[in-house]
């Protein structure tokens, strides 16, 4: 019996499986590498404030040199994350990304009433007492990234606004 057709079919099916697995694995693998680099900078323990990126900045591809980034990592298996920030008087946004790269939360300075932002990222199934009234965003994955972007128009403005953004905190709450 000729077995070539079976071998060819096996090759095509295997290639299809490799194709699907590669496509599905790219986002979490890239995200894991980026999160590991951020963790090395201490973003898994507290919020890390970075100056506007330069050619030496290699943690995330295609960074904007007009923005000063602040970043913290969350791991909801340890508990919900409470984010607090003072809003600078420039373009400023807070966004949250799931482990598959989905941007599941974003708010900017013009959408915030007052000069402070406070919100919680948590899993839908987790109970949390004592924070009623604090806005909640439900994360689609346990692990992810909170990223703050502050527009930097010039050095003077950066020196003025940098202390404001540095008041931001990320705190893991006990369940």
């Amino acid at each position: 019996m000729k077995t070539w057709p079976l071998w060819i079919a096996a090759a095509i099916i295997s290639a299809f499986i490799v194709h699907i697995v590669a496509v599905l694995l790219v986002p979490p693998v890239v995200m894991t590498v980026a999160m590991a680099r951020m963790a090395d900078a201490g973003a898994d323990q507290a919020i890390v404030h970075m100056p506007p990126p330069t050619a030496a900045s290699r943690s995330v591809v295609r960074p904007s040199p007009d923005l000063a980034y602040s970043v913290c990592l969350f791991d909801l298996s340890k508990g919900p994350l409470l984010v607090k920030a003072k809003v600078p008087e420039t373009y400023w946004s807070v966004s949250a990304f799931a482990h598959n790269t989905d941007n599941f939360f974003v708010v900017n300075d013009q959408q915030i009433t007052g000069d402070t932002l406070e919100f919680i990222i948590r899993r839908e199934e987790d109970e949390l007492a004592g924070y009623s009234g604090v806005p909640v965003s439900f994360a689609p994955s346990d692990r992810g990234i909170v990223l703050m972007r502050m527009l930097v128009t010039d050095r003077e403005q950066y020196l003025e606004m940098d202390p404001v953004r540095r008041q931001a905190t990320c705190e893991t709450l006990s369940k």
Binding site: V23, L24, V26, P27, V30, M31, A34, V60, V61, R62, S93, S95, F97, N100, T101, D102, N103, F104, V106, N108, P140, I145, L147
Partner: peptide
Amino acid sequence: IGSTASGPYMRAQIALTGLLALNKSE
């Protein structure tokens, strides 16, 4: 880009060339 509506190919593309991109509302 950046939205939860992104398909697997778009997600992978963004991961490789524009990680942490914001969604179109922003």
